Computed example of a mutant assay.
Amino acid sequence: MTVTALMREFIWKMHTGKRQSFAASKLLLGSLVTQKWITTPDRNVTNVSDEMLKGMLKLYNENFTEINEKRFAKYVRFFKKTTYVYIVNNEVKGYCLYYIKPSLSASGIKKIATLYSFAVDGRCRRQGIGIKLLQKSIHEMKLNSIDHITLYVARDNESAIKLYKKVGFEIKEELMDICGPGKRCYKMEIRLDETGS
Results as ranks from 00 to 15, higher is better:
V88R: 10
K187T: 03
D193L: 03
L6Y: 11
F169R: 08
G180V: 05
L151F: 02
L27G: 04
K26D: 13
T150H: 10
I149M: 08
F169A: 03
N89C: 01
R155Q: 11
V48W: 08
E189W: 01
S105C: 06
A119Q: 08
E170R: 12
V76Q: 04
G55F: 08
T16M: 14
M14Y: 11
L97S: 02
Y60R: 04
E51S: 09
N90R: 03
S117W: 09
R123K: 14
E158N: 10
S103I: 04
N144M: 05
I146W: 15
L133A: 03
L163N: 01
M7Y: 15
F22D: 06
N144S: 06
T34V: 06
T46W: 05
I146P: 07
I87K: 14
M7Q: 12
W12K: 13
Q135W: 01
Y60G: 02
L27H: 14
Y75L: 10
D156Q: 09
G17E: 13
L27P: 00
V3M: 14
G168S: 02
N144E: 14
Q127M: 15
E69M: 05
L133N: 07
I129T: 02
Y95H: 04
F10M: 09
P181C: 00
Y164T: 01
Y98N: 12
K187Y: 01
E189M: 11
C96L: 07
H15Q: 09
S25Y: 11
L28I: 12
S159K: 13
S159L: 11
L32R: 00
A113T: 06
C185M: 07
D193G: 07
K136D: 04
L29S: 06
K70P: 00
S103V: 01
N47I: 02
Y95R: 04
V48A: 08
M52R: 09
I178H: 08
K165M: 13
D156I: 00
A24D: 15
A160P: 01
G55Q: 03
D42M: 00
L59G: 00
S49F: 02
L115C: 06
K36A: 08
K162I: 00
I138M: 12
M176S: 09
A23K: 10
S159C: 01
R19Y: 12
R184Q: 15
A5Q: 12
A113L: 08
K18H: 13
K81N: 09
R123L: 12
H139Y: 13
L115R: 03
N61A: 09
T4F: 09
T34E: 13
F72I: 07
N90T: 00
I112V: 14
T46A: 05
V48T: 06
C179L: 04
E158F: 13
E9I: 07
C179P: 05
H139A: 02
I11G: 08
D121A: 03
G55A: 03
L104N: 14
I67A: 10
